[in-house]
């Protein structure tokens, strides 16, 4: 569904007020996301995960330098095509909940998303109410304005919007941050349900453990580079099926596992 080849990104910064330099944030990333699966992208904060999402959606600032290529359904995904497809074929569930219109009830927001996807009014209403039911949003949540929604409900509204927009690629950026376990599993279930319908879901998160509960493949990122892409099933035992030391350390550092990092790796990784 989505294939990324040698994607690099540099953003400007200003060491002095008037002088401009470029810093590399993504460094020759390559991986692909297949339809009907959840692909998790994990890494520390600052590894460039969110920038990757913005690069795919074409939401980068104008002065960003992007190289390499993305292919969506076997066709090159360039900036005009990103603009044409986002909100329809490409959907982003952003990290910040300010993406919802603060003056509209949830059901209307989902309804509008369906209309944008080209449905006529009455099927759109039907699709919206089905989607809201599908993601377990009750009557109160449907009539609520964004500020009345909890974090988990708001993310499920965003998921429902991606659902009715009939997007074939859904990118969720840290959808579980700040949620308690019950809310988190509902949101993750919603994403897994999207994948079951044949959509490609890209889950961007720092939370390896919960990403593994729904992911089929996992890409580990570190400092803008792709360290490893592995099947989710490789994350088991002591991580002996993982190729890179960093991915293994990430797995081993979880409280349910060793809660410790290999000694050879520790000095380098510790606060690296």
């Amino acid at each position: 569904m989505l294939r990324i080849e040698q994607l690099s990104l540099a953003l400007p910064y200003y060491p002095r007020f008037w002088r401009r330099r470029f810093a590399t944030h993504l460094d020759q990333l390559s991986f692909s996301v297949t339809a009907g699966s959840v692909h998790a992208v994990v890494g520390a904060s600052g590894a460039g995960k969110s920038l990757l999402a913005h690069a795919i959606m074409g939401l980068l600032p104008k002065d960003a330098q992007l190289s390499g290529s993305c292919f969506f359904k076997q066709t090159l995904l360039d900036e005009p095509r990103k603009r044409a497809l986002r909100g329809r074929e490409l959907a982003l569930i952003p990290q910040s909940l300010s993406a919802l219109d603060p003056l509209a009830r949830s059901q209307h927001q989902v309804n509008w998303a369906a209309r944008r996807a080209g449905l006529p009014p009455s099927p759109a209403r039907q699709a919206a109410s089905q989607a809201l039911a599908h993601y377990q949003l009750d009557e109160r949540a449907r009539r609520a304005y964004p500020h009345e929604l909890s974090g988990g409900m708001a993310r499920r509204v965003l998921t429902a919007m991606a659902h009715v927009a009939q997007a074939s690629l859904v990118i969720a950026d840290e959808p579980t941050i700040g949620l308690d376990p019950a809310q988190r599993s509902r949101v993750l279930d919603a994403l897994a349900a999207l994948a079951l319908q044949g959509k490609a879901v890209m889950l961007i998160t720092h939370d390896l453990r919960h990403a593994l509960s729904i992911a089929d493949r996992v890409t580990v990122m570190r400092e803008g580079r792709c360290v490893e892409s592995a099947d989710a099933s490789a994350f088991q035992g002591t991580g002996q099926m993982l190729e890179s030391a960093y991915a293994r350390a990430l797995w081993q550092a979880l409280p349910d596992n060793a809660f410790n990092v290999d000694t050879e790796y520790a000095e380098e990784s510790r606060f690296a």
Partner: peptide
């Protein structure tokens, strides 16, 4: 440590 990746959390 909820916002941190496993290695940073551990450290």
């Amino acid at each position: 440590s909820t916002m941190l990746d496993p290695i940073t959390q551990l450290a």
